[in-house]
């Protein structure tokens, strides 16, 4: 009897030891992996062959690797360096070669490479590659048009792609008239808000939703103030001296908060911008050609 009890006791002790060791190795290995991250992506030419007839599954796992890599950094609000974005871009370019029809790859990478890192040309290249395989999907020319128009300030190319998108069955009817109205929308936050709302409605990951929601709130705040500036201009036939004047004259009830921690500022043109440049402080320095371009 006592032998059985000591046997059970020993087993319980061993299980407790196992649990302790497991949680230690789990965290310790995670930290070690982070320090020694190789950031190497298997070239698609190789992974295509190595995946044998499981290319679709290989693409899923590789995209998951990219989502977790960037998602984890966003979640922890860590600095995303240029090298990190290089690594992420390489993953995406490998995934689209494994499965060029997989829309999640384009959806996620376009959002991250434009709003997140300002790598507009990479985003366009990825979308153009996807368009070759998905010619009946309006979302590809639509997103390319948006990047040209909104981020690269090329209204002509933007209009060209919106027109292509509008002719594809299933495209929203608004696209048909959008191409001709691009000049009006130039630099208008409404346009970006519409796109962000579309992306948000299609997004399922809570971390990425939060990421888009933050930007959406910031742009909605800027738009609210801009609309108040327009009203002020109609009422007083001049631009306000400061945003505070909008509140003083009761045109704006309260000043919206910039979720990035900056302060909204009134530009000479009457446009509204923020001292945060609509970007998280740690990312601001590292993202070349960052989203500071947005409101220009």
């Amino acid at each position: 009897m006592s032998r059985r009890i000591s046997y059970l006791l020993g087993l319980v002790l061993l299980i407790a030891l196992h649990l302790g060791l497991y949680s230690h190795t789990f965290t310790a290995k995670g930290e070690l992996d982070k320090k020694a991250r190789v950031n190497y992506v298997l070239p698609a030419e190789f992974s295509r062959v190595a995946a044998l007839d499981f290319q679709g599954l290989a693409a899923d796992f590789q995209l998951l690797q990219g989502i977790f890599f960037i998602g984890d950094k966003i979640d922890r609000q860590e600095k995303i360096t240029a090298l990190d974005w290089d690594y992420f871009t390489r993953i995406i370019k490998a995934v689209i070669k494994l499965d060029p029809y997989f829309y999640d790859t384009y959806h996620f990478s376009t959002g991250m490479l434009t709003w997140g890192s300002g790598r507009f040309q990479d985003a366009i290249d990825i979308l153009k590659y996807g368009r070759q395989f998905n010619p009946d999907d309006f979302r590809f020319p639509y997103h390319i048009g948006f990047i040209y128009f909104y981020f690269l300030h090329d209204a002509q190319k933007g209009a060209q792609y919106f027109e292509i998108a509008s002719k594809i069955p299933g495209a929203p009817p608004i696209l048909a008239s959008l191409a001709s109205r691009l000049a009006y929308y130039k630099g208008n936050y409404t346009f970006a808000i519409n796109l962000l709302q579309r992306m948000l409605s299609a997004e399922r990951s809570p971390e990425i939703r939060q990421y888009y929601q933050k930007r959406l709130t910031a742009l909605q705040g800027a738009l609210l103030i801009e609309k108040a500036v327009q009203k002020f201009k109609i009422d007083f036939l001049r631009l306000p001296d400061s945003i505070q004047e909008l509140i003083d004259k009761k045109i704006l009830e309260t000043l919206p908060q910039d979720p990035y921690g900056g302060e909204y500022i009134l530009l000479e043109s009457g446009r509204i911008y923020s001292t945060s440049k609509f970007a998280n402080a740690p990312q601001k320095k590292t993202t070349a050609g960052s989203t500071a371009d947005v409101g220009e």
Binding site: L57, D104, H107, R204
Partner: peptide, 15 residues
């Protein structure tokens, strides 16, 4: 995944 959940499910099942 975000949008093509059907595609991922089919990948797993077929594999």
């Amino acid at each position: 995944f975000m949008q093509d959940l059907g595609k991922v499910a089919v990948d797993f099942n077929l594999s």
